[in-house]
């Protein structure tokens, strides 16, 4: 599938922002260094808003996005839009509490965290429910989106804590470490799942299987069309192994450095925020591969041997 830059920016930036909201809620409830909230919430707000704005760049007729909340009964994209907008209410309340009243409003923080998780879940479900892309049609998709958001938010929270000079509790570091392991496990199974071909074949797509073999003789038109450009993206597969390696490295290394510093085993080699941005780059690359490597069944009508 074509990896649309605007959609990748949206899922990575907003996802990480939502993850940060979850961590900030946890730390607010547990009374961990409230000062971080003063930087963390505005940062999360900016990431979420920038991501959502970026997602509208993907639309060919953005003015009609005003209808996009209407089909929540069947459409996960509609549900995502509603969840995203509803989450802004408690999120704005948290800001009001922090900057106008000078108080931590726990209920607003919890509601913002729940809304954040719901929004990320909806994002995952948009892709998970597309049967035509076999690699996406697994519960691992929404799990991976949730874990990526939770871990990414955790890394940013960790980086903010350390920049502010606050101590990080062992349980918090441990949870982020475990989330990272979970993310690695999910990615491993994801790639195994990706390698398996779809049950849809050229034979089932045309019904011409029978005893013989079916292969494309001639495309409908000699030039590319919207379908082959949108669903026939091939560039990623050539360098897939290398790109996966880089994204894994950018995921594991930044977090490993942060955890080593927390344990006192190493000095900080870079500012913590730079390390968090490195992690974000890894997530970005992984998300790019999520789209670029996925194979759509329509390719079967354009000469692909499997989908």
């Amino acid at each position: 599938m074509k990896p649309a830059f605007s959609v990748i920016c949206f899922t990575v930036l907003s996802g990480t922002g939502y993850g940060l909201v979850v961590w900030l809620a946890l730390s607010t409830l547990l009374q961990r260094d409230p000062a971080v909230a003063m930087i963390g919430y505005p940062l999360a707000f900016i990431m979420i808003s920038a991501g959502l704005l970026s997602s509208t760049l993907h639309l060919k007729s953005p003015a009609r996005a005003r209808f996009a909340l209407s089909q929540w009964r069947t459409s996960w994209l509609s549900r995502e839009g509603i969840a995203a907008l509803l989450t802004f209410l408690p999120l704005l309340a948290v800001h009001w509490g922090l900057f106008v009243n000078g108080a931590h409003w726990h209920l607003a923080a919890v509601l913002a965290a729940i809304g954040s998780l719901a929004t990320v879940f909806c994002t995952g479900m948009i892709y998970q429910t597309i049967r035509a892309v076999r690699a996406w049609a697994t519960p691992m998709t929404s799990a991976a989106y949730l874990l990526a958001a939770f871990t990414g938010g955790g890394v940013f929270w960790l980086a903010l804590q350390m920049t502010g000079g606050a101590s990080v509790s062992t349980p918090a570091a441990l949870i982020i470490g475990l989330a990272l392991v979970g993310l690695m496990v999910i990615r491993h199974f994801w790639w195994r799942n990706l390698a398996a071909p779809s049950t849809s074949t050229v034979a089932t797509a045309t019904g011409l299987g029978g005893p013989g073999t079916v292969s494309l003789f001639e495309r409908p038109h000699v030039t590319e069309n919207w379908l082959t450009e949108e669903m026939g993206f091939r560039v990623a597969r050539k360098h897939a192994a290398r790109l996966r390696g880089i994204s894994q490295l950018l995921t594991i290394l930044p977090l490993a450095i942060l955890l080593l510093v927390i344990m006192g085993a190493a000095d900080m080699p870079l500012p913590a925020t730079v390390i968090a941005v490195l992690f974000l780059t890894g997530t970005f690359l992984d998300r790019w591969l999520f789209f670029a490597e996925a194979r759509h069944t329509v390719r079967l009508y354009y000469g692909a041997s499997h989908a």
Binding site: H58, A63, R64, L77, I126, I130, R131, E230, M231, H296
Partner: peptide, 14 residues
Amino acid sequence: CMGCGLCAWACPYG
């Protein structure tokens, strides 16, 4: 139609 393209992704037939 806002041109998001999701329906085309959902259609297995193109």
